[in-house]
């Protein structure tokens, strides 16, 4: 049942030799004294969707958040190891975290539009980064981002209504539009569909597949079917360890590790 899904999604893009966009080496994360991640090594390749799967509390969201330093704001959170974005260590003291988050955008588990208009939601990022100078430029960026997020047709007549008045699925696509409006290179998605119904989920998944041509995507998901449908590479986390990483088709059909096998067949997790 899983095998058919993975083959269709993964096969055409499984080709190796793709450029590595982000590279994590020996990444460890501590919350106070508790170690949440043990020496993670993971490559994220350009224009691919990398799925992070694993049971709850395995550290996949923590790892995702280290990739644009969202853990920085958590008290008592400490990190060791290196994460490179285009050969550059993002934890280097010379790196500006504001600039980094413009390059590595994020979409959260629960749709979290600002309580402002749809227009202002999308325009906020470009405005604070000074990417737009005039009203016309802003209009263009807003339209382009909403079009890419597949939301333009639905909201073009009510851009100035509140972003929170949209349905859950639309809100999440608005959040994606908001993230791509600042023209990031990598988009991190933390269980973007967990609060959505199956139809809205299908739309987001379709969108993720389209976005892959322009962006590099890392997605945390609890749904193995979703990982199989949208991703080209899959990494399986368990108790703070990266157990196995490989092409999605291989992970789901022929995992090397017993724990992976157990998880994808539903024996635990």
């Amino acid at each position: 049942m899983l095998a058919t899904d993975t083959q269709t999604a993964a096969a055409p893009h499984a080709a190796h030799g793709k450029r590595v966009k982000m590279k994590a080496t020996e990444v460890e994360v501590y919350y106070s004294e508790k170690r949440a991640l043990n020496k993670i090594n993971l490559d994220v390749r350009e224009h691919e969707v990398t799925a992070l799967i694993g049971p709850s509390g395995c550290g996949k969201s923590t790892f995702l958040r280290t990739m644009n330093r969202m853990n920085d704001v958590i008290d008592g959170c400490r990190m060791a190891g290196k994460i490179l974005l285009d050969q550059q260590d993002i934890y280097d003291p010379n790196i500006d975290v504001v600039q980094l988050r413009a390059r590595v955008g994020m979409v959260f588990q629960k749709p979290n539009p600002f309580p402002k208009s749809i227009y202002d939601n999308v325009a906020y990022g470009p405005r604070i980064h000074g990417l737009v100078r005039s009203r016309e430029e802003t209009d263009a960026v807003v339209q382009k981002s909403l079009e890419r997020a597949g939301l333009w047709k639905e909201v073009k007549d009510r851009l100035h209504e509140g972003g929170t008045s949209l349905s859950g699925g639309q809100q999440q696509r608005l959040c994606i539009a908001r993230a791509i409006a600042v023209d990031p290179e990598v988009i991190l998605m933390d269980e973007p569909c967990s609060a959505l119904d199956p139809i809205a989920t299908a739309k987001i998944e379709e969108l993720i597949d389209e976005l892959r041509t322009n962006y590099t995507i890392v997605i945390v998901t609890h749904s193995m079917q979703q990982a199989a449908r949208v991703s080209q590479r899959t990494a399986f986390f368990h108790l703070g360890d990266l157990v196995e990483v490989g092409d999605t088709a291989q992970i789901f059909t022929n995992p090397n590790d017993e724990r992976t096998q157990g998880y994808i067949t539903g024996r635990f997790g």
Binding site: N68, V98, A102, F108, N112, P115, Y124
Partner: peptide, 14 residues
């Protein structure tokens, strides 16, 4: 809600 802070931080707001 903290989600508002995260949303803004995630967009690169200081």
């Amino acid at each position: 809600p903290p989600s508002i802070r995260q949303a803004a931080l995630g967009l690169g707001a200081s």
